[in-house]
Design a protein around this nucleic acid. Structure first.
Length: 858
RNA sequence: GGGCGUUUAGCUCAGUUGGCUAGAGCAUCUCCCUUACAAGGAGAGGGUCGGGGGUUCGAGUCCCUCAACGCCCACCA
């Protein structure tokens, strides 16, 4: 406890309290707490490969307010932090930061010095480094980034228990990730399969359905002439991807399309290449699209994959994993002229090949008319820059209901059983699950990730035997199959006939982050801890990753624990650009969180965040931060003022009706704020509290301050002081989850310990039914109404509020008059009123006030 | 094409089982240096609650319908 300062200030109050909270262990999780006394949060691990932006500040504040509420309610709050440093974003950042690229063929250099540390020149060509060197650089850079994130989160005032920190690439995460995978494998929930897969040609990795996005791109319809094998003429098809012509394996039309019915079962020859392909029927073909008959290639899009599979077509892949036309002509292409055409395309990118083949088609007369420009949606990897191709590769999958109705229904039921905040977000989940069209592809052909923990036997020819992978024992985890050796083999057998080889892939970042409850709760590593936190109370996250993070976490917990991993899902909205309508002002000035913390204080930034209702997108607003700053300042000043009246025992009963009425009003606010927080509606809790607070400062304090100075005797003064201090204590605690710094500052002026460990206020402590009958619940409203009329009279007369009022006449019902009489002394003090009279009127509907101002001295 | 959300003052938004004359903050305007706070205080103006229809004694609130905007998903020859 410290004294009330003469000049309270918000300047730089953060650092002192950050240190005090750490040294006092205010936010430490109590590991002895039983599950029912724990509030466990499955914190989103931010990707640390970028900068911390206002979106982080916004959503993490929301969670923090709820965490603080439950802590004050007496729960042991399990509030961990994690860093999502695993995966592609980190790789990309390391490449750009150090000016290197990963090349598995380069030997490890223990003394490697990267060519740059930050901002290599644009024309710099990346220097190839070994995979171990690359991973070291990833670890080095993420460690730096994580320090910055931690400092910012502390500055924001997150009540995280930093001893619970994890990173998605650390040993604990790798162990959990591999353990969960191996259990999925042993139960048949994970499997490997060679199949056509969406492929990013720049990152050279497979991507999953959940990581796709459509982008509108210009394209062009090319009309090509296919030649009927019986020589009876041509069939015209429209395609946006003529460069795939050599990969054509069939023409497909709708079975009911009368135009093409006679052709089903016949064959045609492709333009330029002269390959004979069948004309087939399939319901996915759209009669009204293009010419109604499509060229099916291996593979132009996912419809091609369906046709290829269901119509049992041959494979004629021509796009390589680098996105270029392969060197060798596909099977079936034997025509000499066709081979010539093909070799002219080999090695070109898809885009280059399109230009080249269009010229060839024009030259051969097999393109009808000019290409017609269109704009159409094209599938991209969400982090990628070029359209996805489809290539055939061997990948690992985890079942997710995309190919299994029973499992899908189970997962839908899991989602339906969650409490969603806001509730309508549940539709995003069910919408996604119902629309799944395949299992979850988890393997990635990358470097900085958790390795797929299996090896494969090699047969007598040194060929990989995929159907019975060699797996490690769980006690060995985590492993790296590229350096570790399976039981029963020695290192010399790696890559040898009858030996083994490690799976070269890593798992998708979601395959690890889908296990954040298990990682943070330390699952098999610390079963006691896990039993105290799992299933978690809440998963806070953005609504944009319901289909990825939320759903995948549900899948893993469903398989592993046969239950949902949490009870609640709290979805936060997005920050919108405030200038999105004013383009001219949006240039320059990128606002960073740290600047705002310094300009307005952390509490003010939190105030802006907490003003947004759960799940609602919100415009960035410095104006709101100014309001938050004002609120914090007011809290300092009013606290100083109230405490300046001197001590009073808050457990005593106030006696004055105005004081009792105020406390009764506050007790309602306590109930409302409590209910709001219980429903994850921090914004409503803040709004109720704030609204009361300003009324408390502007009206109640003004009414009673003269009396509190003991100008009318000790009894009235004592009642006011008790009420003021009881209200102040309550307000400090109601604001504590939203404004942790200023409330701690003022709390410690007069209380022991941290406000953040103080008990959350309850109705019964504020309003104790102290044996006094209030003159109806409107007494305080009547009093404020009269005070307001007096103030208005002064404003309209353009005189100071301290101007003396000669007389006031109030017309009201007798019962209202009774109430006003009991409080008149306070009104007179606050309004500088000399005398008043009452005009009782049984029929009065309103309180009318006539004010006569004292003549102003000239 | 399917799903979800939003639409209330110039701006950002409250308005929780239908109920006094629809609220707050910001912005605007007026006044006040009153000793907790001028980085403050006291007031004022400003709204056909997106349009239309319906239920009801009574609708911002419930139902139907239309529209605009936004998001998610699907389609992608």
């Amino acid at each position: 406890m410290s004294a009330v300062p003469d000049k309270p200030s918000l300047d730089n109050i953060e650092s002192g309290w950050i240190q005090a909270w750490e040294s006092e262990g205010i936010y430490a999780f109590d590991r002895t707490a039983t599950r029912e006394n724990v509030f466990a949060i499955d914190t989103p691990p931010p990707t640390v490969s970028g900068s911390l932006h206002m979106g982080h500040v916004f959503s993490y504040t929301h969670t923090d307010t709820v965490a603080r509420f439950w802590r004050m309610r007496g729960k042991s709050v399990f509030y961990p932090m994690g860093w999502d440093d695993n995966g592609l974003p980190t790789e990309r950042r390391v490449q750009n930061y150090f000016g290197v690229s990963c090349d598995s063929s380069v030997p490890y250099d223990p003394n490697l010095t990267p060519p740059f540390r930050g901002d290599p020149p644009k024309d710099h060509k990346p220097v190839p480094v070994s995979r171990p060197n690359f991973i070291e650089l990833c670890e080095e850079l993420t460690a730096e980034d994580e320090k910055i994130f931690e400092d910012l989160f502390r500055r924001l005032g997150l009540s995280v228990d930093w001893s619970l920190l994890y990173a998605t690439i650390d040993e604990r995460s790798r162990r959990a990730s591999q353990r969960a995978f191996l259990r999925n494998l042993s139960r048949g929930e994970a499997y490997t399969q060679e199949a056509p897969t969406l492929w990013d040609v720049d990152f050279k990795t497979a991507v999953a359905q959940a990581e796709l996005e459509d982008r509108e791109r210009p394209g062009a319809y090319h009309t090509l002439a296919f030649h009927r094998s019986d020589g009876s003429g041509d069939i015209l098809i429209d395609t946006t991807r003529p460069e795939l012509l050599a990969a054509c394996v069939a023409l497909v039309a709708h079975p009911d399309d009368d135009r093409y019915k006679p052709l089903f079962g016949t064959t045609v020859r492709t333009p330029l290449f002269g390959v004979e392909v069948p004309v087939l029927a399939h319901p996915l073909a759209q009669i009204d699209k293009g010419t109604g008959i499509a060229m099916c290639c291996t593979f132009g899009d996912l419809t091609d994959v369906t046709w290829w599979r269901e119509l049992r077509l041959p494979m004629r892949a021509i796009i390589g994993r680098d996105g270029r036309i392969v060197a060798d002509a596909p099977q079936g292409l034997t025509d000499a002229r066709g081979l010539e055409h093909f070799s002219a395309l080999a090695g070109k990118s898809a885009k280059q090949a399109q230009t080249a083949i269009a010229e060839m088609l024009v030259a051969s007369g097999e393109m009808i008319g000019e290409p017609r420009a269109i704009s159409h949606p094209v599938k991209f990897y969400e982090k990628g820059d070029r359209p996805l191709e489809i290539v055939t590769s061997r990948q690992w999958y985890i079942r997710n209901g995309g190919r299994d109705v029973a499992l899908r229904d189970e997962l839908l039921a899991r989602g339906a059983g969650l409490a969603w905040h806001p509730d309508h977000m549940r539709h995003r989940y069910s919408n996604w699950v119902e629309g799944l069209n395949g299992d979850w592809l988890i393997s990635r052909q990358r470097y900085f990730g958790v390795p797929v923990p299996v090896w494969y036997r090699l047969d007598e020819h040194g060929e990989i035997v995929y159907d019975s992978p060699l797996v490690p024992d769980e006690s060995q985890l985590p492993i790296d199959p590229s350096t570790d050796v399976p039981v029963g083999y020695d290192a010399s057998q790696r890559g040898q006939a009858h030996g083994f080889v490690g799976d070269p892939d890593v798992m998708d970042t979601w395959a690890t982050s889908s296990l954040t409850p298990q990682i943070a709760g330390q699952w098999e590593d610390n079963a006691d801890l896990f039993s105290r936190v799992f299933p978690f109370d809440v998963r806070p996250q953005g609504h944009d990753i319901i289909r990825t993070w939320l759903f995948s976490t549900m899948v893993r917990a469903h398989f592993e624990h046969d239950r949902a991993p949490w009870r609640n899902a709290a979805l936060s909205g997005w920050i919108l650009d405030p200038d999105r309508k004013k383009m001219s002002k949006s240039k320059g000035n990128v606002v960073t969180p740290i600047d705002l913390f310094e300009k307005y204080g952390s509490d003010a930034v939190r105030y802006w965040s907490a003003g947004a209702r759960p799940g609602i997108d919100t415009a960035f607003s410095e104006d709101q931060m100014k309001v938050g700053r004002k609120l914090a300042t007011k809290l300092l000043n009013v606290s100083k003022f109230v405490l300046g009246f001197g001590d009073a025992d808050e457990s005593l009963a106030p006696t004055h009706p105005v004081d009792l009425a105020m406390l009764q009003k506050l007790s309602v606010v306590v109930n409302e704020a409590t209910a709001a927080f219980e429903a994850y509606d921090y914004a409503r809790a803040l709004e109720r509290t704030e609204s009361f607070f300003w009324w408390f400062c502007d009206d109640y304090v003004e009414l009673v301050k003269t009396r509190a100075y003991a100008t009318h005797g000790e009894e009235g003064a004592l009642s006011a002081r008790i009420a003021l201090r009881r209200a102040l204590s309550t307000l400090h605690r109601l604001f504590a989850p939203i404004l942790p710094f200023v409330t701690e500052e003022v709390w410690r002026w007069w209380q022991e310990g941290s406000v953040h460990r103080a008990p959350w206020p309850v109705h019964a402590d504020v309003w104790r039914e102290e044996g006094f009958t209030v003159h109806g619940d409107s007494i305080i409203d009547s009093v404020c109404h009269v005070l307001g009329e007096i103030r208005r009279a002064k404003t309209e007369a353009k005189v100071s509020q301290k101007a003396v009022v000669e007389s006031v006449v109030v017309t009201a019902t007798p019962s209202q008059i009774d109430g006003l009489t009991s409080a008149w002394s306070d009104i007179a003090d606050a309004g500088s009123v000399s005398s008043w009279s009452a005009a009782p009127d049984d029929d009065a509907t309103d309180i009318t006030v006539s004010v006569v101002l004292a003549p102003v001295a000239p």
